[in-house]
Amino acid sequence: MLIVKDLSVERIDKKIFENINLSLTPGNITILRGKNGSGKTTLLKAILNLIEPSFGSIFWKGKLLKNNFYDFYNHTTYIADTTSSLRKLTIKDNVNIWKKFFISNIGDAQIETALKTLKLDNYLNKKVATLSFGETKKLEFLRLIIENKKVWILDEPFSNLDEDSIELMKQTFEDHSSKEGSIIFSSHQNPGIYVTEEIEL
């Protein structure tokens, strides 16, 4: 599905990373590991065609990604290390906006169950600004369910999460992988998830 070949990114004569190769097929889970500033987020952005690489190519379904990126986007959910939920609005409003904006075919019952699992069902009418960072992060993961896409690209998904939430995410990853979904995520360390490929930056 997705192939990254000899990818390098430079910025103002400084090499961020070079010669990265990876392939993502259905069911694959790939982890990008590295210290702060090693270029994990930059690599994810390059894969999303948001950054022009200095060398190398990315292919999606056999075609160059930059000629085919909207098709890639149709199959991809990206969760950044920032929170995209609208802080001035309530959880309920955010969920409604996401559901409509992503033309989601996920039913209300399924979203309710996900909110319960994430332990956010009691805060539906609370503004996101009043939630803790961990809760906001968990709300962000609800987009994975709402968008219901095959490829997940996640930047530092485990930061600021408690042990229960990390365990829940691990199960979600395994479940998605078993349904032929693919995941690329960046992390300082692997919190014990079975991964098919590990890339050190």
């Binding site: 999303l48 909207y70 149709n74 959910t77 990206y78 950044a80 920032t82 929170t83 939920s85 609208l86």
Partner: peptide
């Protein structure tokens, strides 16, 4: 721009 919604809009087509 700061909360990443520009990227999400772009990824949404």
């Amino acid at each position: 721009f700061e909360n990443g919604n520009l990227i999400i809009m772009h990824l949404n087509g």
